[in-house]
Simulated assay, not measured.
Amino acid sequence: MSSHWTLKNKTALITGGTKGIGLATVKEFIELQAQVCVVARSEESLQQQISFWKQKGICVHGICADISLKCERDKIKKEIQNLWTHLDILINNVATNIRKDTCSYSDEEYQHIQETNLTSIWDLLRSLHPHLKQSSSSSIINVSSVASLKYIGSGIVYSMTKAALDQLTRYLSVEWAKDNIRVNSVLPWYTRTPLAKPVLDNPKRLQKILERTPLARIAEPEEVARTIAFLAMPASSYVTGTSICVDGGFSNVGLQ
């Protein structure tokens, strides 16, 4: 295998790595021979996954932390500093959503979505910047959403956080280029994950989604994970500040 298409010996921190797109990304990175550390809120699910990989002879590190809490994010920073001398790859994948009409959100719900989807990433990026800078060429991939570009009827607060995340991606790609840190984002459309399940289980909503998707199917988490892996590889060494839609063509649809 060409050295441009591997993650061999690269250190990678992946948040929300026990389900959905995060889990698929962990599996992809393991196959590409990266050293992986998984962050998950549930101790039970984290230990189950760690044990599963251990039985297969695969060493994966784990940190149990609720990324929406400042004290827990501080724990992640300390754990990574103890684990590795530098960090090559950071995948900001954790997100949450509450689907409501705009005027129905409580202040607490608004704050929780903001803290989980945006503030947590802002905080991790700044605290881990020195560790990323220690790498000769590091890569940050933020998992955004096509909700940052289009109305998809899935809650304004979620969409706001994802739009801000895309701008953060563009800004840091310029500011941190001097530190040999690339910053990109991927924008999935509806993907077969636990977060999307309530929507996909609604037959009318599913039909509407498929009608607006040129490829006429729902994405699998592995398809998003492969795009994330590409952005982490040396093969994408000249790609930064880019937001890649992984949406089956949805973002290109106008009137049909």
Rank of each mutant, 00 (worst) to 15 (best):
N97G: 04
S139N: 07
K100Q: 14
A24F: 04
G153H: 13
S251G: 06
L90E: 01
V253Y: 06
Q55R: 14
Q81R: 12
W84G: 06
S237D: 15
I30F: 04
L168T: 12
N92W: 06
V26R: 00
K70W: 12
P221A: 05
T18H: 03
I141M: 00
K178P: 02
C103A: 10
T116D: 08
K204A: 14
G17H: 03
K56G: 12
Q111V: 05
M160G: 01
E108M: 11
T6I: 13
S185C: 07
R170L: 01
V38W: 01
I141D: 00
L69F: 09
H4D: 15
Q81C: 12
A12M: 14
Y171M: 05
E108G: 06
K150H: 13
K204D: 14
R41V: 07
Q33W: 03
D101F: 07
S3G: 05
I152N: 02
S42T: 14
T213F: 13
A235R: 06
M233D: 02
A147P: 02
E175A: 10
I67W: 01
R217L: 07
L231C: 08
I76R: 00
I67V: 14
S68P: 11
S154Q: 14
L132C: 14
K8S: 12
L255Y: 09
L87G: 02
S106R: 12
G249S: 09
P194Q: 06
L132V: 14
I21D: 00
I67Y: 01
S236Q: 08
K100N: 07
R192K: 12
S185P: 10
T193Y: 03
Y110F: 15
V143C: 03
S68F: 08
L32M: 11
K100S: 07
L128F: 12
Q49C: 01
S145L: 08
N9H: 14
A95K: 02
T161V: 10
K77W: 09
T240C: 11
F250V: 15
V174D: 07
E220I: 08
S138V: 01
A235L: 10
L83N: 03
E108K: 14
G17F: 04
H61A: 13
E108D: 12
I218C: 04
G22D: 04
S159E: 05
V60T: 02
P194G: 05
A225C: 12
G155P: 09
L206M: 13
T119N: 12
A177S: 13
